[in-house]
Write a protein that binds this DNA or RNA. Structure first.
Lengths: 241, 241
DNA sequence: CGCGATATTGATATAGATCAACTAATGTGG
DNA sequence: CCACATTAGTTGATCTATATCAATATCGCG
């Protein structure tokens, strides 16, 4: 079931059997991609979209000096570049962060599917707007939070998203990112991430042991992050402190 | 023609006559709203979406101390809260910045329209993804640019967006925002906006006279802003330095 | 074992925040 | 029409969070 994690535990957004089978049929066989490869280059017309089955991917904007800003982190079940279906080409790069497994759908097939199945279209639309909602939260994070708040916010968000796909109990999870990756997500330097991570650790909010992250004090973490998971549109029960 | 500015000058995204008439018929009579009113409150289930006909609106996230972060600025022709159609409720507030004129569509009508007109659905979808593309650019702006770059970027973006709806020649335009508004968009304080605006003025990049903004040196402005308008998906010709 | 990538720590520099005073413009009620 | 209040913008002085630069430590791995 390649779509098992797609829209998983998103409040009231289940696909019916016909819709799910239609997408499953449209998806290519799973493929593996190595870590740290650019999968979609900005500006290039794309003719298929990618469903992430396993591993992590990211979307990047790059400045003149080559500094990268992560604008989205993608987890299994995310339709990574579905944006490219209405947009036709992307304004940013899509990159693998770990080794990943993906399946793809041709845009021509998506056009047929969306011609025939309007409710499915709205669910696909919804999934891209979930990305937009996360974008907005990232804008808030960068515009209004200090370094500790940004890191805590990033970790709280990731914890709940992984929980929704049963990759976490909401507190403990694997996050195979470097501090540089996290810095690129949070608009900080890797040096400062290292320092602030330690203060979060010594404050008893998080435990970080390599890629293994544990939320030790969720209420306190949510407080410094000013975290309110409403924007993730999760099932009730996954989104209470 | 209430939809005259909707998707105006967006490369290859015109509505056909049937689609345009369908939306026109679905739109309410224009209404006026006073400046600085919250039009949609976060979390409240909304049953209609708003097309902005004239004036400026914004979308805000608010932190614990009441500091606001603008996450989107909306101009005439924008379907301000179309996101709420698939999402059902918003994770942020929608506010009028000036006196505005709006027309609304019931979500129930949008459901019928999108059941019947798949291409129209994809165009509506596209328009929300344009917002998402702008969100990403704002993440980049906040994460990777300094204050001068952020202000220049904000002004360059606004210049081109206003140009697309014939409210500017791409260089000169009215922007009835306070420095506090701009600060809330760019993750800065109003004091710092004041100072950096002056440096942009003395550097000969912009002239700002109350709400009247002129881009004096567009190549230089684009350079400090690291501005690349690809993400606005404008007609060719509107997007060349 | 040794090498490249990652993380940590220290010293210093700086962009932007904060606090406060002042000015200019706009509006309001008597 | 004036006195006064309100809002927006400007300028200055100081403070602080984060960047930058540089050295060292640690880890995974061929």
């Amino acid at each position: 079931m390649k779509t098992e994690n797609f829209l998983r535990r998103r409040r009231g957004r289940q696909l019916d059997e016909v819709e799910r089978l239609a997408i499953e049929a449209a998806l290519s066989e799973p493929r593996r991609l190595a870590a740290r490869q650019t999968h979609v280059h900005r500006g290039v017309t794309v003719r298929e979209s990618t469903l992430l089955l396993d591993g992590l991917m990211g979307r990047y904007m790059i400045d003149r000096e080559g500094n990268r800003q992560l604008v989205a982190l993608h987890l299994p079940g995310d339709f990574v570049d579905l944006h490219a279906f209405p947009l036709q080409h992307l304004d940013h790069d899509v990159v693998t962060l770990t080794e990943v497994s993906i399946a793809t759908v041709e845009h021509s097939v998506l056009t047929s599917l969306t011609d025939a199945l309007p409710h499915l279209t709205r669910m696909l639309w919804f999934s891209t707007l979930l990305d937009a909602a996360m974008h907005r939260e990232w804008i808030f994070r960068l515009g209004r939070l200090d370094a500790a708040g940004r890191l805590a916010h990033f970790l709280c968000e990731t914890a709940l998203r992984l929980n929704a796909i049963d990759r976490s109990d909401g507190l403990r999870f694997e996050l195979p990112l470097t501090q540089r990756d996290i810095a690129e997500a949070c608009g900080l330097t890797n040096v400062h991430v290292s320092r602030v991570m330690r203060t979060l650790r010594t404050a008893g909010l998080f435990e970080v042991d390599g890629p293994r992250v544990t939320v030790l004090d969720r209420p306190a973490a949510w407080r410094v992050a000013q975290f309110n998971p409403q924007y993730l549109y999760l099932d009730d029960g996954d989104a209470t402190p």
